[in-house]
Amino acid sequence: MKDYGTAVATAETVEVTTSSDVVNARQVVRTLAQRGGLPLVHQTKLVTAASELGRNMLIYGGGGVVRAALVADSGRSGVYVEFRDQGPGIPDIETAMQDGWTSGSGLGLGLSGAKRLVDEFDIATGEGGTTVRIVKWGR
């Protein structure tokens, strides 16, 4: 995945420590997607992915920070969202990315489903925490 570090400098930030913060993060992402002119279905997919990743960050990562920004690449615009926590990390990421795998009581669809719903997906995880970065492009 491309480095979207410069976009993050101007990003909107939501600190997630409660489940109502996840609702806020969803709304921030939706507003950006609308501003970026993403078609409705793309908006819906992006916000749904953000909801899954935001919840994971809260439940398994002990909370963290969501950053979202508009990005542009060769004439198209999109939305970049980053979820960064300092939780325990995911020991076996290959397994965790599979449909139906959960360490808790979920459906195990969050990570695999979120990946399907966006255009770019990158996850870095270790003992220092987990960072998931996604991009959804407009038309």
């Binding site: 819906t44 997919k45 489903g113 399907r116 719903l117």
Partner: peptide, 14 residues
């Protein structure tokens, strides 16, 4: 259910 929601649910795997 909105059409965009239905499409998203299918892709999510639900």
């Amino acid at each position: 259910m909105r059409p965009a929601v239905a499409m998203t649910l299918v892709e999510l795997g639900l």
